[in-house]
Design a binder for these strands. Structure first.
Lengths: 205, 205
DNA sequence: CTGTGAATGTGAGAACTTTAACAGGAAGGG
DNA sequence: CCCTTCCTGTTAAAGTTCTCACATTCACAG
């Protein structure tokens, strides 16, 4: 059984390794990687060891090889198809950001406001929310990103589910009946800041 | 010693309780709260019990009272002063969002692009990044939110630290020397999506 | 070909988090 | 005034995650 925390850290390691590669480094040590990612060296080794020994004893890890291995583990060695629902301030910022990540393929964005229909954010076309179900039948997607007000979230989740989307991230906290088998994750910046504030207060003492 | 996970959940409970209050509910049961927040009832009780017994045996928790208690624990019963650095797409979206949260007081925003100086996002004025250090001397802040490209993050962190900011959230992953005593938290949407994708894949089987 | 140095992989155990079960006490009915 | 009901607060156990220490093994030098 692989800890979820390990998976989260793999993402972080991966980004760090890409920067290392760009810098021309070809071997990575668990100690250096650990320092750069803010974790302990033994944890890095343990995390990687869950998936078999990638390293060379006495030398470290080959950067290239490790990058490919982690990409494989995370499943981002092929494009992940994403649909976005809600193209407000936050939604369009996310849309722009995700288009810069090579292994995300943003199929389309959907908004309720008809003045936006047909327009584009970067390369991505904005469509009517009403089309979402039909769109998914012809263009299957793995993930959905929701940035709309809380009240509409349940409906969108249901439509996504019927369309075969298994993982959804929502930027609005809402009480949702999550279909069995779907994974729903909330990202709420206010909550994150509250948590941060609590930790900062504690640290001070 | 209080688990960090407990603190995170308190934020979630709080939002749920606010909705319950808006709906006119005046008692909250651990079982209901748990169901709505997607955790177990005994965990809710355990989380709350770390801070003393708020509940009434046989009846539940008084919604009003519990809201105030949690606000007190999180320290959001008084305004938290925040500065924002970086007013691009994502930055301005966050800026708008945070202004809607009553207990965050956004003191100012800072950007490197001089065309933005003097303009406003909502009520918040955009200033030059060069003014940040001086601004903080006159306007102490608890938290900083950074939404600029990775390369500039270290400098901003250092300036914030000298200005007395103890907690920082960055939307760009970067390798940072974090000053002793500062709390730095990264929020990276691509990483979150990768993690979500992994969980969704696993779920399917 | 052998010895040395260096960093990985791993197993035991410590630390932390969650669950489960139940003792205890408040409220309300009779 | 007592009894029943119900849900909290708590304790012990189970489960999970992380750390530490060290045996292992690879690369390279002599």
């Amino acid at each position: 059984m692989i800890p979820e925390a390990t998976i989260r850290r793999l993402s972080v390691y991966l980004r760090c390794l890409r920067r290392a590669k760009a810098r021309g480094e070809d071997m990575a040590l668990s100690s250096l990687l650990a320092h750069r990612c803010g974790v302990s060296a033994s944890l890095v080794r343990k995390d990687l060891s869950y998936f078999g020994g990638f390293g060379i004893k006495g030398k470290g890890y080959r950067v290239d090889e490790l990058i490919r291995s982690i990409e494989g583990i995370l499943g981002i060695d092929r494009p992940i198809r994403v649909v976005q629902i809600g193209v407000g301030n936050l939604g369009s910022a996310i849309l722009r950001y995700l288009q810069q990540v090579p292994y995300f393929k943003i199929l389309a964005a959907f908004d309720i406001d008809e003045r936006k229909w047909g327009k584009r954010v970067g390369e991505v076309e904005i469509r009517s929310c009403g089309e979402l179900g039909e769109f998914l039948r012809e263009n299957p997607a793995e993930l959905g990103v929701i940035s709309i007000p809380p009240d509409g979230v349940q409906d969108v989740i249901d439509t996504l589910w019927r369309g075969g989307v298994k993982g959804v991230m929502s930027f609005a906290l809402a009480e949702i009946d999550v279909p069995e088998g779907m994974v729903l994750q909330f990202v709420d910046i206010a909550s994150e800041l509250e948590f941060l504030y609590y930790k900062a207060k504690k640290q001070k003492k």
